[in-house]
Structure formats: structure tokens, C-alpha cells
Design a protein around this nucleic acid. Sequence first.
DNA 1: ACTCTTGTTAAAAC
DNA 2: GGTTTTAACAAGAG
Length: 288
Amino acid sequence: MPELPEVETVRLQLLRKVVGKTIAAVNVHHEKTINHDSSFVERLTGTTIDHIDRVGKLMIFSFRDISDFSMLAHLKMTGQFFFVDESDSVSGGGHSLTPALSRILPSKHTRVTFTFTDGTTLYFNDMRLFGYTKLASSAEVEKAKASYGQEPIASDFDLSTFTAGLKRRKRAIKAVLLDQTFIAGLGNIYVDEALWHAGVRPTRLANRVTKAEAERIAHFAGEVMRHSIKVGGTTFQHFADTGGDAGNYTDYLKVFGKQGTPCPRCSTPIIKIRCAGRGTHYCPTCQK
DNA sequence: ACTCTTGTTAAAAC
DNA sequence: GGTTTTAACAAGAG
């Protein structure tokens, strides 16, 4: 489940690996992934990746000397970017315990392959086909950006906007934190984690959350996501970085997937319920 | 064979 | 218009 930290992990790696590279060929293995766009291959071939931006969980690729379109990439639930440089394995850098990506790619789940002029390759894999890499006009990009709320990791995060937003919402705090138009980047894992750190029960109605609690939620949402970015994100089921490696925030999870194990703060067994239509983990004692 | 998994959107209800 | 709920999407694990 890629959330902001996982997407940022991928973006930071791609910045180092593919920015400045020119696309020599594009192979589309599944049309849905590119939004059935018949101009996709033609428009991307020959372009040079200029920058990769991110808003919430959405990546935005821009291209040198091209202002009329960008490529939006969303991993949704099982999307993965893999970068392969054949010359790496030839020179014997084999430090990874996982089988060389170059030997298993493209795979059954490869949906788009980008080959660069230097011989390196970027694969977009997506088992469940919810993710996409699609071209969008600058107007569409602006519209997409505008649809996102502020990010908890933003240096200019505005607490009063956040607390005011909670006040007028009458749903479970968890549902509100999952709403990307209100606050961007959190998903099922980091919502549960942030609420545990803040000591707030996921089922509490947003408009009944106190100002002090709201401040803690915002603070810890930012903290867990910043921490996770530093350690390469969380791998719970499918997430892998561009080298096929797992994220390490899994080692720091307090409640997600921890049902039945003692709460790290008060030793009460963590329980799992359904909230906001999602599997939800919390401590029934120290989350009020 | 059946249930469970989740990010986002469209649509309908309020 | 803003908010809320639900279904739909899709494919695999167990």
C-alpha cells in the first residue's frame, strides 16, 4: 500500500536514476495503465525527463522543452517502478539478496516499459491494474494538484486550517485523515500509526477531537511519515523500491498489523476493527 | 468457493 | 456547494 513515504522513496530514487535520460522506446503491455491513450508512445519517445514532482501520492514527470503535457504516475495499491541498469550486474555489484531484477523483468505484471537511450530501463509493474502512468495537459495537472489538501510534512502546514476542517466534519477521524482532498498523503498504515502516537481512537468523530489532540495528530502524522521516508517506507504486502527492495519502516510500526500483540505503550493487546471501510488497528486502553 | 485486502473515483443522498 | 456513504474497480492470498 504505497502512501506518501513510499511514493517519496520511489521519487527520490528516480530523481537520481532517470532525470536527464532520454526515452528511446516505450512499450505498452496493458492499455488501461496508460488510460487507453493512442498518442502515449509517440508523444513520449524522444523526450528527456526533466524533473519528477510529487503531490500526495501522485508523481508528476515533466519533460525537457515540453510544456503542453506531463506524465502522471499513481501506484494506487500495487504499482511499482523498477529501474534496471544491465551494466550494474556486469560490473559485479551484486549486493542484493533478491534475484536480479534484470532477470525477472519484464514480468507478468509489467504494464509499461520505458527504455532509455543509454540502455537502461524503467518498468512500471502493477498487479491489480489500479495504478497508471498517463499523459495530462498542464491544465489537467494543475487541476489534479489543486484537488489535494495540505501535506503533514509540509514546512508551511497550517494547523488552524486543519483544526477548522476537523470541526466541520462529522465522520470518524480516520475517515477524515484518509480524505486526500482534506489532507494529502496518509493511507491506511500511517493513519493508524499517527492516531496511536497521538493517543486518539480512530472511531472518534472528527468534530469531537480537541484542539490539543488535533495538534498531536498533525504533529505525529508528519513525524511518522518523515521517519518512514528516511528508512525507505513500509513494506507490508507489495511495496518495493526501484531496486526491488523492501522498506524498513515495517520495523517501527506500533499498531498496523499488530492485532493481538501488546501495545508498546501500555501492554494492552492491540485490536483490529473495521472503521471507514478499512481494517483498523488501535489500542483500546491508551487511545481515547 | 468464499472472504479479505485497499486508493481513488463516480454517483447518489443529504 | 459541501459532506457523506456506498459501490465499483481488480487480482491475488488464504
